[in-house]
Simulated assay, not measured.
Amino acid sequence: MVTTRLMKYFREYYYKSPLGIPDMLFQREIGFIPFNGTMTRHRKFNGQAEIEDFVRRSVPRHLYYSSSYYRFPDQHKMLEKEWLGAELIFDLDADHIEGADKMTYMEILAEVKKHTLRLLEMLMDDFGFGNKNIRLYFSGGRGYHVHVESDRIYTMDSDSRREIGDYIRIEGLNMEDLKMLDDSYFEFGILKKFNIYISNFYKNLDENYIKNVFGKAWWNYINYLEKFYNGEKIIDFLRNDKGNKFKLLIKQNKSNEKASIDYDRIMLEKILEDFKKSALAEIDEPVTTDIHRLIRFPYSLHGKTGLMVKPIAIDDLKAFNPLDEAIPDIFLEREAKINLKIDKFSIKMNKESYNIFRGENSVPLYVAIFTNAINVAEFI
Rank of each mutant, 00 (worst) to 15 (best):
D93Q: 05
D93G: 06
D93A: 03
D95E: 07
H96I: 03
I97K: 02
M103S: 05
M103R: 01
T104E: 03
Y105P: 01
I108F: 02
A110E: 05
V112Q: 05
K114Q: 10
K114Y: 11
T116N: 04
T116Y: 01
E121N: 00
E121M: 05
E121K: 07
L123M: 05
D126N: 10
G128H: 15
F129A: 13
N131P: 07
I134Q: 10
R135H: 00
R135Y: 06
Y144A: 02
H147W: 03
D151Y: 00
D151C: 02
R152N: 11
I153M: 11
Y154I: 02
Y154Q: 03
S158T: 13
S160I: 11
G172K: 12
N174D: 01
M175T: 03
E176N: 14
D177H: 00
F186W: 13
G189D: 13
G189T: 01
K193D: 05
F194E: 14
F194C: 13
F201D: 14
N204G: 04
D206I: 08
Y209M: 08
I210K: 13
I210M: 13
K211F: 15
K211C: 14
N212K: 12
G215W: 05
G215H: 03
K216A: 01
W218K: 11
W218C: 12
W219G: 05
W219Q: 03
Y221D: 03
K227L: 15
